[in-house]
Design a protein around this nucleic acid. Structure first.
Lengths: 204, 204
DNA sequence: CTAAAAACTTGACCTACATCAACTTTGCCC
DNA sequence: GGGCAAAGTTGATGTAGGTCAAGTTTTTAG
């Protein structure tokens, strides 16, 4: 009995962790012991649809890895208009990087678009991980490098493409999200109003 | 004789390296031996005003750390219009991250705005560094994290601020660059035409 | 199953910024 | 130091995309 309970909680085959372990295995190799050390630092959390995981002004204490559902990160400007910075479907990470790094109040809101399950890695545990398994320093460097490339590409797209081209890019890059996301969220992500987005789609 | 030559090349006080060693010291501590290992992996290069360090389509093989002068990184869109992604005054790093990571042809052009001195760290040497002094993995992770935060903030600004507010932000963030940079480069960075930028400044 | 809320559409009008063109000023190089 | 290219200015006009408002459709939660 006891043994089964232990197994369930820590073996690397225990369902909630297979996604994140595969995600990591793309970049670094972990022994089974290291996998256990790692997964023991994670805390599962459920976030109901429309519930906020993080609000403007909060200090971000965790990174969240999405296993099911979908999160969106957005800011609100001085006119009350929302601007979507990122979506996090399963297999993606989400955090307010500015706040997580500086431990100062952030500007990001993170809301669940549907009932969502995440694995939380606290900043403290992340630092422990860097100490105990230095390979994770490499892993997160690569992760952040890829985010930077994507962010810069989006900057370039914003400066050099029309809304229509940006939409086409979005469709290519996130083919699955097009069907699950409300149009107004995609509109916000590519930087146009829902009205203009609607007109844009009806041309073609 | 021989001893003097050796000293000049490797001691950490040798002028060209003090800037980069201080830059690094902000995040990690290096012993004198480690400093020598590191600086021996760097290759100084001079880039004349208007000369290109990197062109659209090149594979980016190095990171460049600017010690004097200034670089600008930009892309060219299908209408031939240039869009400035970043400036690198002294104490800043420059690279085409996408190309550097993937070793595929990049999209960035990097040109010297004035006669510029850089220290080059090749991708190969950077990987050696990660092997030999794992602290560097930490250093570059932090560096990239900060770039990501800046890039995301610029994305948000582009979506939520007027050109005028973006200009004001630019002035606050890069007070020194305003006086050295041609207006059209700043215009391009904040995402407007030189004509509109000129009008914007004459109001006020 | 139903009522209410949220998402989407469509029309009329508006504005921040772009484009093109002609001119003036600046600054670099021989 | 003078000629010339690049940078900056200014005016007239064009347009991608925004705003506001009213209506229709879809989704959601009980």
């Amino acid at each position: 009995m006891l043994h089964i309970a232990y197994t369930k909680k820590t073996t690397f085959l225990y369902m909630p962790f297979t996604l994140i372990l595969n995600n990591i295995a793309k970049h670094i190799h972990l022994s089974k012991e290291e996998q256990v050390v790692f997964t023991d630092l994670l805390k599962p959390q459920a976030i109901k649809r429309k519930q906020f995981w993080l609000s403007d002004g909060d200090i971000c204490k965790h990174s969240a890895f999405v296993t099911t559902g979908c999160l969106r990160g957005f800011t609100v400007d001085k006119n009350g208009i929302e601007h979507v910075l990122s979506f996090a479907p399963p297999d993606w990470w989400m955090a307010d990087m500015y706040s997580l790094i500086s431990q100062k109040p952030g500007i990001l809101n993170v809301e669940a678009l549907e009932d969502t399950q995440v694995l939380l890695l606290s900043k403290t545990n992340q630092e422990k991980l860097y100490q105990q398994i230095p390979k994770f320093e490499h892993f997160f460097r690569v992760l952040v490098e890829n985010s930077l490339v994507a962010s810069q590409q989006r900057l370039i797209d914003g400066l050099s493409l029309t809304a229509e081209d940006r939409y086409n890019n979005f469709c290519k890059r996130y083919p699955t999200l097009i069907y699950t996301l409300p149009q107004k969220q995609i509109a916000s992500y590519i930087g146009v109003t829902p009205e203009f987005f609607s007109r844009m789609r009806s041309r073609k």
